[in-house]
Design a protein around this nucleic acid. Sequence first.
DNA 1: GCCAACGTTGGC
DNA 2: GCCAACGTTGGC
Length: 151
Amino acid sequence: MQCWLFKTEPDLFGIEDLARAADQTARWDEIRNYQARNFLRDDVKVGDQVFIYHSSCKAVGIAGLAEVVRAAYPDPSQFDPSHALFDAKAVVGSPRWFCVDVRLRQRFSDVIPLRQLKAMPELAGMTLLRQGRLSVQPVSDAERRAILGIL
DNA sequence: GCCAACGTTGGC
DNA sequence: GCCAACGTTGGC
């Protein structure tokens, strides 16, 4: 079992939306970054755990935990001309962008603030803290335990 | 709103 | 393949 961190802007889609979704399950789509895409397409598997991270908002940090319930499939938004992220270069049968489905497992009573994560020596090497802009990223076992240990 | 860091595009 | 210009992310 691999663990991941997925970023999202809660003003657009946050953990509250995931909690309200049917079966608390939602498509994790609209990823348009190749490094993130490659992780989604090649490495994210059913049963993997996912920390849900809220960015660009008031309470920046980790909001909860989800689980992958469907592995990579073509992101439909790339083929939809009315969609803001429509990709004219994407070809059905040879898609560029992928998505997965996740189900909520646990909504943390409080968002774990980014500030607190930054202060933890165990997380000093974490991708989140080292690489600014990556919306799908692996979390090591030690990092996962350190984060869950906060709860 | 600012701005640093990083990714993408496109001319050559 | 280089690199300048431009666009986006995302914390503050």
